[in-house]
């Protein structure tokens, strides 16, 4: 799973980790990849509320912050 090493423009924490959504990704899948537990997807959803309205709707190319 590819990880973006540079923070998105405007983010003030240079140590934050980001992930760019690929085809077939879900928040659960991303949570399992980064946390080992797909049930922790709300952590990612909450950290990206500025761009996500629904945890089931993510778009390819979206850059998500992984808290």
């Amino acid at each position: 799973m590819a990880v973006d090493e540079k923070p998105a423009a405007g983010d003030d924490n240079p140590y934050a980790q980001y992930y760019t959504v690929k085809k077939g990704d879900t928040l659960s899948k991303i949570a399992e990849e980064f946390y080992g537990d797909k049930m922790l997807y709300p952590q990612i959803f909450e950290a990206n509320r500025d761009q996500l309205k629904d945890p089931n709707k993510i778009k390819v190319g979206q850059k998500l912050r992984i808290p």
């Binding site: 990849e33 946390y35 080992g36 537990d37 922790l40």
Partner: peptide, 11 residues
């Protein structure tokens, strides 16, 4: 904090 809540660690 998040990993501490996880049932298992990522691979």
């Amino acid at each position: 904090g998040t990993l501490s809540k996880s049932k298992k660690l990522p691979k």
